[in-house]
Amino acid sequence: MKGLPLFPTTTVGSFPKPPYLLEARRKYLRQQISKEELRHLEEQATREWIQRQEELGLDIFVDGEQYRGDMVAFFADEMEGFQIAGLVRSYGNRYYPKPVVTGPVGRKRPITVEWFRFAQQIASRPVKGMLTGPYTIAEWSFNEYYPTRRALVLELARAIREEAQDLVRAGARFVQIDEPAIHTRPEEDFELAREAMEIVTRDLGAYTITHVCYGDVAKIYPAMLRLPVNQIDLALANEDYALLEVFKKHPFTRDIGLGVIDVHSHRVETVEEVVAGIRRSLAVFEPKQVYISPDCGLKTRTIEETTAKLRVMVEAARIVRAQFA
């Protein structure tokens, strides 16, 4: 893409929050500090992450989502029609606040645009607009209002569409719409998820990306290629690039966000293994199709692990790029 090197490097969205911000969020929940005080620290943490991305030499930035908790609850909190029902377990002892739809859903005001502007103003590189997709918001919420899942998903798609348009108006050249729940009911719902994505991305005027993870991606391949986005971002590293076999059977016709860093492991990958992973992938993709990223958001890693892993990733991309110069 214009203005970007071959194998552009980026990340999937979230970065870990520094200890002072975690502490501030706890205090805010206990009403010991004001929203303004919390906001001030969220801005500080965002500035630090922009600075780290500059130092690491990434090509496309994110704002790091220092002001978000859960990726669905954040949007539910900011929109009309939702309440938070309570905590529900996802696995082990991991819980998430699950929203419930109790009325017509829609935007009250722009949700992420101010943060996008804040980050873009201080960044030397393009910052991605980061949205949670309508299918995932619906799937990870209880629904007490809409008669069908379809009605809820399509209404949410219209709201996320407005948000995406506002991001583009604010200058976003890249908009990512995450749909980690897209393969929950592939036979029944894939077409609905596609239709919803179409509502969000049609004639948007930006390069669009969707990130899919957490499950059986092979089940929705090659149907996945019908998603109306420029790039599909996937986790390759944590399954040792097993998905490449799936892509060999049917050519991958979108750009690929190639996940080359395992976000669930404390171990920092070596440059050699990441280089090897990218090279293996080039048996399936054309070089110009490939964007380099971690498998998923990095918010569960420490700041030190995150920067160490990203340093390796950027170095590996540089090495592979040099061969094509």
Binding site: R89, S90, Y91, W140, A181, T184, Y214, G215, D216, N238
Partner: peptide, 14 residues
């Protein structure tokens, strides 16, 4: 081994 979705829920099992 690793996590996988428990049927069509948002709960995961190993």
């Amino acid at each position: 081994d690793g996590l996988q979705r428990w049927f069509d829920t948002n709960m995961y099992y190993r």
